[in-house]
């Protein structure tokens, strides 16, 4: 029951660390079951490598159910591989055929340097959130939750934007390595809700500023980010961010360097 009948050739990016050049290396895996997830297939390969006393492939993963955003992988030229609306850990080998050659690379973006093999550093996203991806409310100062009715439609729309898992597929998919979908999803969620209004303008300015500091590229509206987003975050968020940013630039005073003080 465990083993299947698929034999595959894998071409995988190997890179020792950030300061060493990397290269593609070919591997063969055999007896792969169509019920395996893509990451389980890599587990099989790693077990083989360990048996041969070679170093296993380093790749990021954790929850393996498509929600933590830790797994990445650029598979056959697509973030999270073939199929839409899923992360790599939700990709199953039944999406491939016996005899296939699969090319596996890390996210490629200036703002996401490679740590090792397929593992990249996405801490730029955390720094963007730290600049404004929040509502400044200290613990203990909240009113009763139902004192603030929010139209279901607005709440649902905010939820749709909030569903972003911060995996970085949008950046990996983009020819310019733009982080606009990620940033716009957070800006949208908070600007759609009444709680987010007081900091609305400053938030847009500060988050966009940090995005630029991190070295992400500009948005040229190709829509690749939306197409590859495992959570179906809509490009409408980017349109909203552009409006938010424009209005904020025209009406808000000097953008502060660090925002969010109490």
């Amino acid at each position: 029951m465990s083993s299947g009948n698929m034999n595959l050739t894998l071409k995988i990016w190997r890179q020792k660390n950030v300061s060493t050049a990397g290269k593609m290396v070919s591997y063969q895996v055999t007896d792969i079951s169509p019920d395996m997830s893509f990451l389980e297939m890599l587990d099989v390969l790693n077990e083989q490598l360990i048996q041969k006393n070679e170093e296993p492939i380093a790749f990021d993963h954790d929850c393996r159910e498509g929600i933590c955003g830790m797994c990445s992988l650029y598979i056959n030229g697509r973030p999270h591989g073939p199929g839409s609306g899923i992360t790599t850990c939700q990709l199953h080998m039944r999406s491939f055929k016996d005899g296939d050659t699969i090319i596996i690379e890390p996210w490629r973006a200036k703002a996401f340097p490679v740590i090792k093999d397929l593992v990249v550093d996405r801490s730029a996203f955390d720094r963007i959130i730290a600049k404004g991806g929040f509502i400044s409310v200290n613990t203990g100062s909240a009113q009763d939750a139902n004192n603030l009715p929010i139209p279901k439609h607005d709440a649902d729309e905010a939820f749709n934007s909030a569903a972003c898992i911060g995996c970085g597929a949008c950046v990996a998919a983009c020819v310019n390595s733009s982080a606009m979908l990620f940033v716009s999803a957070k800006v949208s969620q908070l600007s759609l809700l009444p709680q987010g209004q007081p900091e609305r303008k400053q938030r847009a300015l500060d988050m966009v500023h940090q995005m630029d500091v991190e070295g992400f590229g500009s948005c040229s509206n190709t829509g690749a980010c939306e197409a590859e987003c495992p959570k179906g975050i809509s490009i409408e968020n980017i349109a909203r961010l552009n409006r938010e940013y424009l209005i904020a630039s025209l009406t808000e005073k000097e953008p502060k360097k660090g925002s969010g003080d109490n």
């Binding site: 009763d144 939750a145 139902n146 009715p149 139209p151 709440a155 909030a162 987010g196």
Partner: peptide, 23 residues
């Protein structure tokens, strides 16, 4: 337990709502 819901809503956590706008 009730304070937690208040706190999370204040942070902008989009919990499910009814058509009347309440949780």
């Amino acid at each position: 337990s009730g304070n937690i819901i208040d706190q999370c809503v204040a942070q902008g956590v989009p919990l499910a709502r009814e058509y009347g706008g309440l949780l």
